[in-house]
């Protein structure tokens, strides 16, 4: 199954994300975001961060998770590309995010994502698992 694909959005970047279960959906959403931010091909893991966040419901949790990773990217200068979700409920996520420091990889950066938005956000069940469309403000 494809992890994600872009759909056309005039000003920003729209991404349709797939996952066989919710865990995979959350992991693939994070991967999609960093795949837009940087060229991830061939990067090797150098550092890891424990990420934990909470929200009122599953959809808000998805955005909170992405924004938490984004905050860590900007302040700790880590390009994340592997995600290991330890715990995922409707309102809480606990995960390990693995990545590489920007450092000498600055020229891999492609796009500045400002935030993940709530625009038309809806996690849907499909025959293969789950899908969701997210609009990133760039």
């Amino acid at each position: 199954m494809k992890r994600y694909e872009q759909f056309p959005h005039t000003a920003d970047i729209g991404v349709r994300i797939y996952g066989k279960d919710l865990k995979e959906l959350f992991e693939n959403a994070a991967f999609a975001m960093f795949d837009i931010i940087a060229d991830l091909e061939g990067l090797e893991v150098e550092v890891k961060e424990e990420i934990e966040c909470q929200a009122e419901n599953q959809e808000e949790l998805l955005i909170a998770w992405l924004d938490e990773l984004l905050y860590n990217f900007y302040t700790k200068q880590i390009i994340f590309f592997k995600f290991d979700i330890k715990e995922l409920t409707n309102t809480k996520i606990r995960a390990k995010a693995l990545g590489r420091l920007v450092g000498s990889n600055r020229n891999r950066l492609k796009t500045e994502i400002k935030a993940a938005t709530y625009h038309n956000l809806k996690i849907e069940k499909t025959a293969e698992g789950h899908k969701v469309e997210i609009v990133f403000d760039v």
Partner: peptide, 24 residues
């Protein structure tokens, strides 16, 4: 700033009885 307040304001919708068609 926008990120944090946009998140918080979702809860204001029920608190102040506001109906909008998009959470954003």
């Amino acid at each position: 700033v926008c990120d944090e307040y946009a998140k918080d304001f979702i809860h204001c919708l029920s608190k102040y009885g506001i109906d909008v068609p998009d959470r954003q």
